[in-house]
């Protein structure tokens, strides 16, 4: 199995949570166990472009109970004899090996997953910023010799990149340090907010400079938050920015 595997360095490990829950995209080589026409295979693949019921395989790291996973798209790419190449965009936690097995059952001849390449994990895709282990070793050595920070940017992305698909709320400078101390976000601190936020949804709290402050759980919808004058807007779950980065502008309770 090859492809997109985001590696989070040191402090950015806290954003991995957001990546684990985000959608994935794969190019899959499926091997049929018998003869089938291209039309038949295409038709069956389209039928699976829906909500899938899957039981995790015997060797799995999660409880083996039946669960549902959404398939965003399944695109037939090409077919050569019994080899079928297709692209699938799916929810986190989809077993593509199971998908191949099930497709094989419906086609009638049976099938298994031959090879898999991940082309996307959340906001990280197989694009210009993807690097190999060799690139990492090479650029890091170059950076150590030349001390030119532009070289670091060739193979490392800011952790904020990992949060590109997470709905965001941008806050005032004055609200930042309290969040870094674990406080919940309140309405007066909110400057702007992305559409589509609902109570219970994981959101990212950002500064106006575009820095991630924390991951939080929304306590109200976008529309409600826009109207709120006071009260909790989001409950801080994972602080990403170190305390003291912004000036303390809040007082603890008591006289």
């Amino acid at each position: 199995m090859t492809g997109v595997l985001p590696i989070a360095l040191e402090e950015s490990r806290k954003v991995v949570q957001a990546l684990l829950l985000s959608g994935k995209e794969y190019v899959c080589l499926m091997k049929l166990h018998g003869e089938a026409t291209e039309e038949r295979v295409k038709k069956v693949l389209k039928e699976f472009e829906d909500t899938l019921y899957q039981r995790p395989p015997v060797r799995a790291s999660v409880k083996r109970r039946l669960r549902t996973r959404k398939m965003y798209h399944i695109d037939f790419l090409e077919m050569d004899g019994r080899n079928v190449l297709f692209k699938v965009g799916c929810e986190a936690g989809t077993y593509v090996r199971k998908l191949c097995f099930d497709v094989g059952e419906v086609v009638g001849c049976g099938a298994h997953m031959q090879e898999l390449r991940r082309t996307r994990a959340g906001s990280f895709a197989e694009n210009s910023d993807i690097v190999t282990l060799h690139d990492v070793a090479y650029w890091f050595m170059e950076w150590q010799e030349q001390k030119d920070d532009e070289i670091l940017r060739k193979f490392i992305q800011p952790m904020e990149k990992a949060l590109a698909l997470v709905p965001k709320i941008y806050i005032r400078d004055s609200a930042v340090d309290a969040i870094c101390h674990g406080a919940s976000l309140t309405a007066p601190g909110v400057l702007s907010i992305e559409i589509g936020i609902n109570s219970g949804l994981m959101i990212a709290v950002f500064t106006l400079k575009g820095e991630a402050v924390a991951l939080a759980k929304a306590a109200a919808s976008t529309e409600e938050i826009l109207e709120m004058e006071h009260g909790f807007v989001a409950e801080t779950e994972r602080v990403l920015m170190p305390r003291g980065t912004y000036r303390k502008r809040w007082r603890s309770g008591g006289p």
């Binding site: 985001p6 360095l9 040191e10 950015s12 991940r118 990280f124 993807i130 990492v136 490392i156 990403l240």
Partner: peptide, 14 residues
């Protein structure tokens, strides 16, 4: 800090 708060979009080898 750039490294400490960085993520690498790695192409995992087989």
């Amino acid at each position: 800090d750039y490294m400490k708060y960085g993520v690498i979009n790695l192409d995992k080898p087989a």
